[in-house]
Amino acid sequence: MSGLGQEVGVAIVTGLLQGCVYALVALGIVLVFRASGVFNFAQAEFGTTGLFAAYAALTLWGWSYSWAIAFGLAVAVAMGLLTERLVVHPLRNASRVTVLVGTAGVALAAIGIQFWQFNETLIMTMPRIVDSFFLVPVIGAPVTVQQLITLGVLVVASLVLALFFRSPAGLTIQAAQQEPTAAELVGISVRRVSMLTWAMAALLGGLAGILSGPNLTFTAGFLSFGAGRALLPGFMAAVLAGMRSMPGAVAGGLTVGVVEQMGTLSFMIEVPGARAMLLFGFLLVVLMVKPHGIFVPRTAVAA
């Protein structure tokens, strides 16, 4: 294959795999937005917190990998529930921008605690679940098994979510989200639905963190603005999904991953911060041209 063609091929493969992480984050963002109209800026920090917990369990306390993952996810979920309890619920009557600032506060607090608890080793590494990689035939893109596992988890998570929201329990939740007052009248606890939503979102965030952390070295705030930052790309994926569509969030995540990777092509090498520039430009174009998203099912547009 020719030079540029191969480069683009590699960028697409890498972008799609990186996009899996964004998609997981975006799914959590969309879940929360559908439930409460909140832009959750703590979504990525659910991931970093889970990652740090798993790291501590695995490398500091010597737990087995599966228990470490379970512990990390549990910590992420606990943080999600705490966020709901301490910030989102008390601010339920405040303006949505206020809640946004509140969730950003949660993210910052989490970062602070990560710095505090792990201040001896500022830069951390964690072994991968399966430490091997291979080259994609023809294109020659390096792919780690860890990334494939992430892809698999994304597929499973999307399927589970799709099935869940078609089940009676899932439909009840959607009803409660759309018509809270009516739901209370027929005896659905809106509060419990809200807790469940935040727990699910935090779980998705935790998965994103625990799966993406081992690919790189990480520091506090890894998923928000560190090396593995997925907050802004996750939000962009959610915007592409019109903030509402689950399949759209997955498609959006993969798209954003690929767009961002175009910044690594060799003719962009002279441009400083090409990835950030592409993301900013892409976001502007999307919001100016298609503010209601691209990957949106027709019914969702009408709603």
């Binding site: 946004l100 907050l231 802004l232 950030a276 993301l279 900013f280 976001l283 502007l284 503010p291």
Partner: peptide, 24 residues
Amino acid sequence: VSLRLTGLYFALVTLAYGSFAQET
């Protein structure tokens, strides 16, 4: 840009603008 967007989306734009400015 903000004139064309509602508050939450504009927050995203400022976030992206911040990292664009810092890095690019």
